[in-house]
Computed example of a mutant assay.
Amino acid sequence: MNERKEINPMLKTGLEMGPIVVFFVAYLWLKDHVFTISGREYDGFILVTAGFIPLIVASSAALWRLTGKLSRMQVATVVLVVVFGGMSVWFNDDSFFKMKPTMIYLLFAGILGIGLLRGQSYLKVVMEEMVPLEQDGWMILTRRVTLFFLALAILNELIWRTQTTEIWVYFKTFGLTAALFGFFMTQGSLFQKYGLGEDGGES
């Protein structure tokens, strides 16, 4: 197993967020264009999706190479991008790629839900180093995150099925990120109540 390494935080953020930024900019540039390849027409969204797949694979590979580690969430995201993005390109149908966030959030909610049924917090395994909490705090937070992921999955389905592609791209790029940030910002009282100090005791 590779030893975990520390890298420049700016470089790490660039590798994690860069593909999403490139996808957004490329979509704005190509959204009104149609391209004919081997006698078949593809709109700009499909071509941007085709370019996004190798980009996120390369950025994740670079991140793994530099840090020696990828989270399970990052690995699952890359796999689903390849599968659903590839299906969108292959079938020339953007609905597959738009379903990807739904599948990601349902997958995470399902995994967390299984842990809860077993009386465990799988979220703790992923986030314990970043957010040290008592066990009761982890269980409460895991239940909330599970419901939140289910809500995001439903919201993504509503957006892509009822709105234009452009609205969905803005929602995917900014809306989901803002929702995740806002959710954890609202958990301040839980972190304060169940947080552990540096010595492992209550803060």
Rank of each mutant, 00 (worst) to 15 (best):
A76G: 05
F91D: 09
S95P: 01
V89Y: 03
M99V: 11
L66K: 07
F84M: 11
S71N: 12
T67D: 01
R65G: 00
W90R: 09
T67F: 11
T77Y: 13
R65V: 00
V81L: 05
K69R: 14
L70W: 08
K98N: 08
F91H: 14
T77P: 01
D94L: 14
V75A: 11
D94T: 14
A62L: 15
M73Y: 11
A62K: 12
A62C: 12
W90N: 04
M99G: 05
M73K: 03
V83H: 02
D94A: 14
S95W: 07
D94R: 14
F84C: 06
A76T: 10
A62Y: 09
V89M: 08
V81Y: 02
R72G: 15
N92P: 13
V81K: 01
K69F: 13
M99E: 02
L80P: 02
W90C: 08
F91V: 00
K98D: 06
F97C: 00
G85M: 03
V81P: 00
R65K: 15
D93R: 11
T77A: 15
G85I: 02
F97R: 01
V89E: 05
W64D: 01
A62V: 11
D93K: 11
G85R: 03
V83G: 06
S95F: 10
W90P: 02
L66V: 10
Q74F: 04
F96M: 07
V82W: 03
G86L: 07
T67Y: 10
A76S: 14
V79P: 03
L70Q: 04
V89H: 04
D94F: 12
W90A: 15
M87A: 14
L66I: 08
D93P: 10
S95E: 09
D94Q: 15
